[in-house]
């Protein structure tokens, strides 16, 4: 699977309060949450970004609250994937669990800037700027995580398990 889109780059320690502020947590409707995606990190994000675009973050992306509303807002907005130097652990598992593609690559984040067009090859584990030679490698997921990703998230994994349990 390949993701191609324009990059919106953020700094270190982007927290889930910035991704989806608590004032919108009185709903869990993905469409509603998408309207406020990244609002306190960049109030104009939803105006500037289009479906398929890619979010880049620095260290510890998605730190803070466990709200799954954060990756849901990003996914429902139509962001195709998130690339960061590192992810906070609850955001990491939430993204895996709900099927929001995430990739870890320090080098890609260092080199790539807002506005760059990039292509992320999820199968090869590579990120490259469109029209440029050379690519950056992403960290490979452990086997267990790959299984969940391949099931489309934890609920896909669970559905298979539920069938086994019920049989």
């Amino acid at each position: 699977m390949k993701f191609k889109g324009k990059v919106h780059k953020f700094g270190d320690n982007v927290n889930t309060d910035e991704i989806i502020p608590a004032r919108y947590l009185n709903t869990s409707d993905p469409e509603e949450l998408a309207k406020h995606c990244m609002e306190d990190a960049d109030p104009e994000f939803v105006e500037k970004a289009v479906e398929g675009d890619i979010i880049f973050g620095g260290e510890n992306f998605g730190c803070g609250s466990s709200r799954e509303h954060a990756p849901i807002a990003i996914k429902a907005f139509g962001v195709s994937c998130v690339v960061a130097k590192s992810f906070a652990r609850i955001f990491y598992r939430n993204a895996i669990n709900i099927g929001l593609p995430i990739f870890t690559s320090e080098d890609a984040v260092r080199d790539i800037k807002t506005g760059d067009k990039v292509e992320v090859d999820a199968v090869k584990g590579q990120i490259k700027k469109v029209g440029r030679k050379g690519s950056f490698n992403v960290e490979v997921f452990p086997k267990f995580i790959k299984e969940i990703v391949a099931s489309g998230g934890l609920m896909g994994y669970a559905a298979k398990k539920a069938r086994r349990v019920k049989q």
Partner: peptide, 20 residues
Amino acid sequence: TGVGSTDLGYAMAFGECWLK
């Protein structure tokens, strides 16, 4: 440890959680 909502939904059904 803190997890997400999907983890909770899964745990309510199966009584377990994936952890590293």
